[in-house]
């Protein structure tokens, strides 16, 4: 009874905040609404015992996306939005209704018994050396999806960098932040960053056997880097530096190298030889963690705005 009341309350809050976020006319308020929506969604996923998804939603959906949207809205000049023509709005509404109805049909009219590979995953999980079935699916059975996801994150960074004015190409990302050594934010950074780095690495490591993993851990590491940059404790590196670019590409490169090596060694692309499955997965996870953390940090920092060599 109490559980049902809690679930209904969370559902009502999620829908209420979603509607408010769509309705509000102010960019900043809408973004705050979106972040609150992400945190409520995290609670919903946790109630469904999908802790991996909940962690990802909190870190990426609510956290990093919220910060990126805030930075984007600051960069955008205040725009006077003309009201969309009524026909277009009706069309969008219809499209959304069709998608919602489709999703509802899938959830409410399940085939009996529902098709599931969960039992197969569980019975073969031992061969990957992993204890968390989610990690097994992400790194072994659906490795191609995971690989493409990491490439998409990198492409998003290329998209942000492509907004760089010509004179600033190769410079440090974002508007220059004066270096600071005292005040609340630098103090916060000094206290939190060591703890955050340990927690980030822990989340990556524990992901093999429990909820966690590279995306969530890398997001925490990226957040610590962003905090250090915002507090003026460190400067964003110039985007022309080749070591930085190597770091960004390391994850996908290692992933694709192991994948190609799988063709002669294990019979197909992205297959692991059984004896080496765990060490290879670990190698990919470490490389991906570093690349994703660097990519997310630079995505938040944004495109360079000042020419290289003219920083403060």
């Amino acid at each position: 009874m109490l559980d049902l009341a809690l679930d209904l309350l969370i559902t009502a809050l999620v829908i209420g905040v979603a509607l408010w976020t769509i309705r509000t006319r102010d960019d900043f308020a809408a973004i705050v609404g979106f972040v609150a929506y992400g945190l409520l969604l995290t609670l919903a996923w946790a109630r469904l015992a999908a802790y991996d998804v909940a962690l990802t939603e909190a870190a990426i959906g609510g956290g990093v996306t919220g910060v990126i949207l805030l930075r984007a809205s600051v960069r955008l000049k205040p725009v006077t939005t003309a009201r969309t023509p009524i026909g277009v709005r009706v069309l969008v509404g219809l499209l959304c209704a069709v998608i919602s109805a489709g999703l509802a049909a899938v959830v409410l009219l399940p085939v009996s018994p529902p098709p599931s590979l969960a039992a197969d995953v569980r019975s073969h999980l031992a061969s990957t050396g992993l204890g968390n079935p989610i990690a097994g699916v992400l790194m072994a059975y659906r490795a191609l999806d995971t690989f493409l996801e990491t490439v998409v994150v990198l492409l998003a960074l290329f998209g942000a960098w492509s907004l760089t004015p010509d004179r600033a190409w190769g410079g440090r990302p974002g508007a220059p932040i004066p270096t600071a050594s005292f005040g609340p934010l630098p103090l916060f950074g000094r206290l939190l960053i060591p703890i955050g780095v340990v927690i980030g690495i822990y989340i990556v490591w524990v992901g093999a056997d429990a909820p966690g993993g590279k995306f969530q851990g890398a997001t925490i590491l990226a957040a610590m880097w962003i905090l250090a940059m915002m507090a003026g404790l460190t400067e964003a590196p110039p985007i022309g530096r080749w070591r930085l670019r190597l770091l960004l590409a390391a994850g996908p490169i290692v992933f694709v190298a192991v994948g190609v090596a799988g063709i002669p060694l294990a019979g197909s692309f992205l297959a692991y030889p059984e004896a080496l499955a765990k060490p290879l997965i670990l190698l990919i996870e470490v490389a991906l963690t570093l690349s994703i953390a660097a990519t997310l940090g630079l995505l938040v920092a944004g495109p360079p705005e000042t020419a290289p060599g003219t920083e403060l």
Binding site: P184, L185, L187, F188, L191, L192, I195
Partner: peptide, 8 residues
């Protein structure tokens, strides 16, 4: 941690 973040 919430204390630290809230105070900052």
């Amino acid at each position: 941690l919430v204390q630290l973040a809230g105070a900052t």
